[in-house]
Nucleic acid binder design. Structure first.
Lengths: 148, 148
DNA sequence: CAATCTCCGACCTTTTCAGTCGGATATATC
DNA sequence: GATATATCCGACTGAAAAGGTCGGAGATTG
């Protein structure tokens, strides 16, 4: 539960990859896909959405590919995730209009809205540049494993 | 994306309901289901999981029902959600063992692990009691509507 | 101009979620 | 003690979303 989709994962990986290798020309979808073992077409579709969202620029033709539209320090993880998976809603009953099937009967929205807002802030606080540099130090670091 | 399942929503609603009405006896699954327009059987299955997780006590027979196993101030939203939807993983590639299909190639885990930890802390910081009291004051309050 | 390489949009398969139905077990009341 | 009520448990069905695949459109280079 509460997990990112693989698409969002792939998107973040691709953005980080472009931040690392993008300075000497564009990277094709195939390059990125091969580097991380992601199906080409699946990744291509994700990159398209990032282009539409204005986070990437695309270049057709031979030696074409994708480049970051902005400085990696100015692109947050939140933007990438939202561009791919859509808006972030912690509660499943809350829609874009703020409506709810149980409307006035459902009274758990307010507390969860705060959680949702907190998550958003967390994701806004992480930039592609940070992810790139954090990867560079490459601390294996203990993984928090939550046993269900 | 990143949204709770309806089951988790229902579970939180039920927990809050029990915190409000539970002091004068147990509430049956039907009572709660009718109060919020939730299908009985669907809710029953959710409540069973909460019983198994030790968050609720169940009483068979006539006038039976469910009661909170602990003080509502000592039950966090995180416990409820995890009992229903399972462990919380921000990245889809990270498993319980900390493994990953892309393993060493995927280097976005560390930053996202921090996010995951942050979300967990947020959810741990909200108790059923707080949700009950926040609902009592009943501020309509502006809803954050994120346009995708 | 033509061949090659790339992006682009629509389609299909698989998995997960949400809800349903049947029967079994335990308790309180009559 | 019989009956009505309520939880409990398994498996099943339908719907939605995720994940992945295919062929076509556009651009660049030789």
């Amino acid at each position: 539960m509460l997990k990112l989709t693989k698409k969002a994962d792939y998107g973040l990986m691709a953005m980080k990859h472009l931040a690392e290798h993008g300075e000497r020309g564009a990277c094709s979808a195939k390059d990125v896909a091969d580097a991380y073992g992601i199906p080409q077409e699946a990744l291509a579709k994700i990159l398209q959405r990032l282009v539409k969202a204005g986070l990437l620029h695309s270049q057709h033709g031979t030696n074409g590919g994708y480049t970051l539209a902005r400085d990696p320090g100015k692109i947050s993880a939140f933007e990438v995730i939202r561009a791919i998976d859509g808006p972030l809603f912690i509660t499943s009953c809350v829609t874009v209009r703020g409506e709810c099937d149980q409307s006035n009967r459902c009274s758990i929205r307010e507390p969860l809205r705060r959680v949702s807002h907190g998550i958003e802030e967390l994701l806004r606080g992480i930039t592609i540049l940070e992810m790139k540099e954090e990867a560079a130090e490459d601390g294996p670091a203990e993984l928090v494993t939550i046993i269900g």
